[in-house]
């Protein structure tokens, strides 16, 4: 089963904080494929999928950012009514708890992808591996 690597950056909730992070990526020609921000009232965690994960991680560390790398699942669903619901139903039955999720369409009316960061990735992997889901690889997402 394929998983992909996501970068998480700790940030205080203040104007200009995201800009400082994206500047490092922009200046080094790193392309962002997906971004979400999970925030509490005063701080947040910015999560990225990028084309060169290790390089981005090293650069951000060097610049003094507080960063971590997480394993997440990119699950393909069909882009049609009920597409997400079928996946959500499965996750509920398998008691997979979601820390963070986002999604985007790959091919209109055909394919979409849901990025799922499980609270417990190992548990999620073992529960979902034989359920006929299609997990996308890093290469497929980054294209």
């Amino acid at each position: 089963m394929k998983t992909i690597k996501q970068i998480s950056v700790f940030s205080e909730n203040r104007p200009g904080k995201l800009e400082k992070v994206t500047k490092v990526l922009a200046d080094n020609g790193i392309n962002i494929r997906a971004i979400t921000i999970a925030s509490s009232e005063k701080f947040g965690v910015i999560k990225f999928l990028v084309d060169r994960t290790q390089a981005a991680l090293d650069l951000l560390k060097q610049q003094g950012f507080t960063v971590a790398q997480n394993e997440i699942m990119a699950i393909e669903i069909s882009d049609e009514p009920g597409g997400l619901h079928r996946l959500a139903d499965l996750l509920a039955r398998k008691k997979v708890n979601i820390e963070n999720a986002s999604g985007f369409v790959i091919e209109a009316s055909k394919k979409a992808v849901i990025l799922v960061e499980a609270a417990d990735i190992e548990q999620a992997k073992s529960e979902l591996q034989n359920e006929g889901l299609r997990f996308l690889s890093e290469e497929e997402i980054i294209q």
Binding site: Q6, S8, F10, A38, S39, S40, F43, G44, V45, K47, T66, V67, A68, Q69, N70, E99, N100, A119
Partner: peptide, 18 residues
């Protein structure tokens, strides 16, 4: 200030710490 080594990217861990 939080400690760099203990940051794992999870918001709920940060909220727990808080």
């Amino acid at each position: 200030e939080i400690r760099k080594e203990l940051f794992d990217g999870k918001v709920d861990h940060l909220v727990n710490l808080q």
